[in-house]
Amino acid sequence: MFRSKTPALIEPPINGTNPRPYAPIWTRIITLVAIVSAIAGILSTLRLVSPALLTIPYANAVTVLLSLLPIIIWASLSIRQERSVSQPRVALLSIGFTAFLTTYTLVLPFIDRIFTTNQWLPLASAVDRILGYTFTVGITQTGVVYALVMLLAWRNHVRYRDDIIAYCITAAVGYTTAENLYFLSQYSSLLDAGATRFFSNLAVSVVSSLILSYGLTQTRFDRASSVIMPFTLIISAILIGIFTPLQSGLTSASLSLEPSVPRPLLGLGLALAIVVAGIAITNWLLTSAENRAREAETVAFMDEYS
């Protein structure tokens, strides 16, 4: 649990602005994505320019550390920012670690052994792969994020729109970190390939969670139709379903008689494009919704006192 150092009082308006008593969320998301993408980009470039530099002692331990990086960065940013405000989001840690533990011990073994995606999806046609990943990995991942936010935060810890985004992203970061570690427990990976994969996992998780959080904010704070939430959940699952085969298809070496090599930078570029576009679009959607709600509140307030 976060404990705020400052007393639970809202600061008075300064220069006509209304200071927020809670920590900003978008800069935290952008910082997380920027750090993980920069590390993946540097390691992938080193592989192309000077592969010898990547031959380091304890490479496996460093790869494990890279897999844990999303939750480490997110936790440190969250602790620092939440402690500095009067109304911290107290359920962040519990959601993050519950997402991590649940995903590693239950969800990923369930996908691996019950859905057995590795047995039937890699050789399926493009459409079948998208459908397959959407209704197995996609729906499970979005379902887990939704369920965790609903069970651990919805009733008692959601006060503002940003709270929902923060809790959704925290669940997604916990899920992604567990996914990274689970991958390393199944396969060995080179440093740069691992970093690229971990960033790709983070990128798709962040964007799908932002879409999900848009649905949740609409349900909680606006008089949105009751189909908005399931619709955004399906869109999140489809995004995961499209991205998963596309990413592996772009990154892997092409199957031909000509010599071909893996193209990690292409996969990295795709992940970066998706996460940048995803953050920009969802930020615009969520900010517009918040502005509309504020305007509606102002109009209601003016009507009441006029």
Partner: peptide, 14 residues
């Protein structure tokens, strides 16, 4: 309902 039905579709496809 969508989550449960979606997973059902996943099992059907599998």
């Amino acid at each position: 309902i969508v989550i449960i039905a979606g997973m059902g579709v996943g099992f059907f496809l599998r």
